[in-house]
């Protein structure tokens, strides 16, 4: 079977994109994507399309972890297999919703950024830290806010899809938190791998994200990256077993430093 190799992008060694069907135009930078202001029909469809294609990427990542780490503990492999099932349903449900809204697969360009970064990492704990603990946890924050926004504009159908997806995503983040802890308890070197993974994700994000003033293909101007950080979904992060200090750190990074207690160093 054909292996998926690596590519060089802005000095970063990333994983080459996974296979996508011809309907999709796959791009690598935010400025090559389409984004719409407001809550008009195009913006709504783009949002659902983006969720859908992110779920495809999540499915690819979980599946690739199963292939590339055959010696991982069985309990963890079961969780990854279960995640594949969940993501498949999410894709189908979002595709169904997109079509109900008059949209279609490939309507706007897509990216496989999460795959390219996560699957560039060579160990499973690092991938869990990247995909589940960082990207999916971040998505949890976004979806929590999105559900309220969809309801506010009277689109209960999309809100219901996201409500169901959020319940599943919480568990994906939770199992990653549990397994990273367990793997680190068994082998302290795992923590170093996790730290390296987190640094790599952060570096890749900073390198590839759009700067303030750049525009998307449809002419939307990007704001300063700091103002694009979503509201932290504290309640669901707790359900996903982030501890208070981790949540506080995320809140600090999201610009709420003055509201959270300072970390006490031993």
């Amino acid at each position: 079977m054909k292996e998926i190799g690596f590519v060089e992008e802005a000095g970063l060694r990333l994983r080459a994109e996974p296979a996508r069907d011809e309907a999709f135009k796959v791009v690598r930078r935010d400025k090559e994507m389409a984004e719409y202001d407001g809550s008009g029909p195009e913006a709504q469809r783009e949002s659902v399309h983006r969720h859908m294609t992110n779920e495809i990427t999540s499915l690819d990542i979980a599946a690739q972890c199963l292939i590339e780490f055959p010696d991982a503990p069985w309990g963890l492999r079961m969780e990854l297999a279960r995640q594949c099932w969940d993501e498949s349903r999410h894709i189908a449900a979002l595709h169904r919703r997109l079509e109900e809204m008059g949209g279609y697969k490939g309507e706007v360009p897509i990216s496989a950024f999460e795959w390219q970064v996560t699957c560039a990492l060579d160990d499973l704990a690092g991938r869990l830290a990247s995909q589940n603990r960082t990207f999916e946890a971040g998505a949890m924050d976004v979806v929590g806010g999105n559900i309220r926004e969809w309801r506010a504009i009277g689109d209960d159908a999309t809100a219901a899809v996201l409500d169901a997806i959020l319940a599943d995503e919480i568990h994906h983040v939770r199992f990653a938190n549990r397994w990273i802890k367990q793997l680190a308890a068994e082998n302290p070197r795992v923590l170093m791998k996790v730290a390296m993974a987190v640094r790599f994700v952060s570096h890749a994000n900073q390198t590839l994200q759009a700067d303030a003033g750049e525009t998307t293909v449809n002419g939307k101007v990007f704001e300063d990256p700091h103002s694009r950080i979503p509201i932290v979904n504290v309640e669901d992060r707790k359900l996903a077993e982030f501890n208070d200090e981790e949540i506080n750190e995320i809140l600090r990074q999201a610009g709420f430093r003055s509201l959270v207690p300072e970390q006490v160093h031993a």
Binding site: W85, R89, A93, A160, I165
Partner: peptide, 8 residues
Amino acid sequence: TDRLLDEP
């Protein structure tokens, strides 16, 4: 229920 979203 929604057979797809609630498939589990």
